[in-house]
């Protein structure tokens, strides 16, 4: 169970009240994959943090099964600088699983993100995209019941991004856990979501069911159609984008 009912989160910024998330009611069915798309600053990260329980709502209620384990890929990599790549991936598992199991999960997760050769590198030695992939591996290795991802592929080149989008879909199809992924890339939202939630200034302004089989191709006319429609709605004629 993952639910928001009339959830708002306000911040005081320079003496004014800002609603980062404003009266959102949303249900994320168990085992579904949902993408949230919207412009920079529209409240996507705040919404994800509310789902994770890292931010308390100013009003409304977040309902999550307390026994559900949550995994988060933050917008920044957030690696422990004193741990190498493998130990960073192992970080949430230590003390919960025995050594052999931890090692196996770490290996598997590093393979999935293509960093098996880099397991002994320290975070300072990684590029931005590599660090982001370590953060993804860390969340995958946890095998959480609820996986929340905040623009997890933003620092990646087009090829690696495509590959990891496929990997995420594969994992979701194999395990059927609840996944919520935030992105500002409309195409990514359409490629990955059973449902796309459109956000604007803290509100949910649209929900689109994408009834296409996985894996999806960016060149599929149905994908292109969805992408064009969502983009048109989000831009809303206020922004001179092509």
């Amino acid at each position: 169970m993952l639910e928001l009912s009339d959830v708002s989160r306000h911040y005081q910024v320079a003496g004014r009240t800002l609603s980062a998330v404003d009266g959102v009611t949303e249900h994320f069915p168990a085992g579904s994959i949902t993408t949230i798309v919207g412009r920079s600053g529209c409240g996507k990260t705040t919404l994800l943090r509310l789902l994770a329980g890292l931010t308390e709502p100013s009003s409304g209620e977040v309902r999550r099964d307390p026994s559900d384990q949550v995994g988060v890929v933050f917008q920044e990599a957030r690696l422990m600088p004193w741990l190498d790549v493998a130990d960073n991936v192992a970080f949430p598992l230590i003390g919960r699983l025995d050594r052999g199991e931890v090692a196996a999960r770490v290996e598997e997760a590093l393979m999935l993100v293509g960093l098996a050769e880099t397991r002994r590198a320290l975070p300072v030695q990684l590029s931005g995209g590599m660090a982001q992939r370590v953060a993804i591996a860390r969340a995958l290795a946890q095998q959480p019941d609820i996986l929340l991802l905040d623009e997890p592929f933003s620092a990646l080149d087009a090829f690696t991004r495509r590959k990891l989008q496929r990997t995420l879909v594969d994992i979701w199809q194999a395990r059927r856990r609840t996944v919520v992924l935030v992105t500002h890339d409309v195409e990514e939202a359409v490629l990955l979501g059973e449902r796309v939630i459109e956000m604007e200034t803290g509100r949910v302004v649209g929900r689109v069911a994408i009834d296409l089989p996985f894996p999806r191709e960016a060149t599929d006319p149905a994908v292109v159609d969805h992408r064009r429609n969502i983009l048109a709605r989000l831009v809303g004629g206020t922004d001179p984008l092509p």
Binding site: V70, F74, E76, R78, W82, F91, P92, G95, Q142
Partner: peptide, 27 residues
């Protein structure tokens, strides 16, 4: 505090957050 959040999400207890995140980052 962003690293502490990583520990919270991993379900670490207060004491574990101290030993595994706070003290190493104070080195």
């Amino acid at each position: 505090p962003k690293l502490i959040e990583v520990g919270r999400i991993a379900g670490l207890a207060r004491r574990e957050i101290l030993w595994r995140i706070v003290l190493p980052s104070a080195l």
